[in-house]
Design a protein around this nucleic acid. Structure first.
Lengths: 219, 219
DNA sequence: TAGATTGTTAATCGATTAACAATC
DNA sequence: TAGATTGTTAATCGATTAACAATC
């Protein structure tokens, strides 16, 4: 039996867009949705959407479309949401606090069960209804609660040290918001969120636009 | 004269990684850096780095490598940093507040000059040293200050309405953190930051890892 | 039936990797 | 000189788009 190749990270990143649209549709009582009408909300081709949905293994019906609720369940299953949804957050700075207050994370199945920091100014403080604990308490708590995912929002200098400690504490997945690339053992997965990269892309597009205009103006 | 195709959005997103490493090197007095030593910090191939640097138009010297300072200047120029660096932020919720306190944005040349919201609970409040203004004041201020970039961190429901208003106020670039795809006129650029997509990718990797383990355990 | 829509296979496009020539 | 490193061209890989067959 071959592993038929089904992963496509770009597709995975699009799934939340579908979830948003589908939830809204479900809330307004729509039962079936065709790709033709679904894409009106987003800048995607019907073809791409169909391919993505095919990847989920959910069939549509000609003329009718796809069953909204079935799709939502399939996406949840495909992403493993509501299964590994408990995570620790390390680094209660600006970004960390934001994620603690970011309601949509919970909606997408990720629940921050505790936050940690080392700075005296932060430990003990309450942020968005959760008390920040000292990082030294993490290993015990991880064992007791069985938490195996972590969100890393510490400054780049301490990212690797903290990551090493997380691995020792049995953490198996790190969502890394620090700008530092982490060195991790094979059995631990990591996903880097590169916000600086996003800013670079934004800046570049801006520059391109202004440059083009200047050029056109001169001709 | 042809436009020789030089854009590669993936490459653009990698540039901040180089900036980080290069700034650290410059601070410690290093003048020349080879790709071989540069990649030790990150999980990239020397080949890819060389290609990226070639895209900047900066030549290296065999045996020696690239001039650290020259590269930093070239990247700044390539991204247009320090040129279009003033931006408004709209939506002083959790994520918006975080970006206001995110020091690295300034380091990368983006300066949030004012923040806006419509909620009474937020207008007038001071966040990270800046007072939140009522959204209705944006158009005038944009004109007076000549600000043409905006960071959008409002809830999805209001994203399009606010975006329309921004366009009317002369905003030419939107860094969109709302999960909503925006419909904008051609002369306005937009870059979507899809954090939910990042979470999906993280979840997917986690699930894949656990699934693989379970399967191996059963064999 | 005709039209709309799914779903699959092939073609294209873009980005990365490999190979290797150039050179200090 | 030999070795290290840049830089370019070709090959590969992955993702998207196009074409079109299947079908309700």
């Amino acid at each position: 039996m071959e592993n038929k190749k089904t992963f496509n990270l770009q597709m995975v990143k699009r799934l939340p867009l579908y979830v948003n649209a589908l939830k809204k549709l479900r809330a307004s009582g729509v039962e079936y949705i065709s790709t033709t009408t679904l894409v009106k909300e987003m800048k995607l081709e019907t073809m791409l959407v169909r391919k993505d949905l095919a990847g989920l293994g959910i069939p549509g019906r000609q003329k009718l479309g796809y069953k909204v609720n079935e799709l939502l369940i399939a996406i949840d299953g495909y992403l493993g949401w509501n299964r590994y949804g408990e995570a620790f957050l390390i680094g209660a700075g600006a970004l960390g606090s934001a994620l603690m207050g970011y309601k949509q994370l919970e909606e997408y199945g990720l629940n921050i069960v505790a936050a940690f920091d080392v700075a005296d100014s932060k430990v003990g403080k309450e942020i968005h209804g959760k008390t920040v604990l000292h990082l030294s308490k993490l290993p015990n708590l991880a064992k007791r609660m069985g938490v195996r995912s972590a969100i890393l929002t510490v400054p780049p200098e301490s990212a690797q040290t903290v990551a090493d400690m997380l691995v020792m504490a049995g953490i198996r997945g790190i969502w890394n918001f620090s700008t530092k690339e982490l060195h991790l053992p094979d059995q631990v997965i990591c996903h880097n969120e590169n916000i600086a990269g996003g800013l670079a892309a934004f800046s570049f597009k801006l520059k391109e636009m202004y440059d083009k205009e200047t050029k056109n103006g001169q001709e």
